[in-house]
Design a protein around this nucleic acid. Structure first.
Lengths: 148, 148
DNA sequence: TATAAAAAGTGGATTAAAGTGGTTTGCTTT
DNA sequence: AAAGCAAACCACTTTAATCCACTTTTTATA
């Protein structure tokens, strides 16, 4: 499972290193590369195997409703296959760089089945929001269920 | 169960010794290492076995709501697998050192299912707060239930 | 209780791996 | 043919894993 945060840089070419602790998971997940998709103003990284499951799920969504068709084309349309180079970096396509506003400082965050790529600014904001969430009854309830 | 408090140091590389009385518990809990997570401005150490339970609970949280996705990414993002070296020390990742403000003097505290890592300053403050809590009605009620 | 032996705890040196930035080469596209 | 881009290559810096030496504390035993 993907866990932990790392702080890195994205270079002018749009290359981002995959942290060492993620590499085995990626390889075991179907190859030397990942699928990148957009969500929550950051990028979600999936192993090939897990992505296949997601695609199957997307296929099973009804296409009757225009909203579901829109969801499908935005989510799948925004997904890219990114393979690793010899230094274990992925090249992030310009459209995804723009979406997540990746410029210089970036953050990689493991979230179990997948990991996320954030700009440093947005990640800091996300942490601030989390602090605010800690006075939210619903959130506190979920935390208490974790058994910490 | 983890119990008792020990005062130690963290060296320049970020290494921290595991007290002898914790070692058997850790080994019995699934291996020669622990999972470290962030909470309450200190670090929580879990055995692998217990961490697996927590992780299952995290996976069962709904991901519909943005607040719950945030909870997951901040909590799992703050979790690291720390294995012991031959001297039974763990290396604490820089992001966790920063979070808990570990610099030189640190405190390890057993709290039954897990143990905690504090900076000495924060630990002392925590004890002061405990003194204040002893005039709190709710806290006194819980204490009376303990059967001391 | 004195002493030896073992275990716990600390610090530093060495080596291997991770991470970063840049250059070159060879495609593709217009 | 030239421009743009990505893949591959290379050089370098930083960081983490491993190993070793030593001090302190605990335990065992005479």
């Amino acid at each position: 499972m993907f866990r932990g945060v790392s702080f890195h840089t994205i270079d002018q070419k749009g290359r981002v290193i995959i942290p060492a602790r993620f590499r085995g998971l990626i390889k075991d997940g179907g190859g030397d590369g990942i699928m990148l998709a957009t969500m929550d103003k950051c990028l979600f990284g999936y192993t090939y195997d897990y992505w296949n499951i997601i695609e199957q799920n997307v296929l099973s969504i009804s296409n009757k409703d225009e909203r579901y068709r829109r969801l499908r084309r935005v989510f799948i349309g925004g997904a890219f296959d990114c393979s690793c180079d010899k230094q274990y970096r992925i090249l992030i396509p310009p459209s995804l760089r723009d979406y997540a506003e990746l410029e210089k400082e970036i953050v990689l965050v493991g979230v179990l089945k997948s990991f996320e790529v954030w700009s440093r600014e947005k990640w800091d904001m996300e942490n601030d929001k989390m602090k605010d969430d800690l006075i939210d009854e619903d959130v506190l309830k979920e935390i208490s269920k974790l058994g910490l």
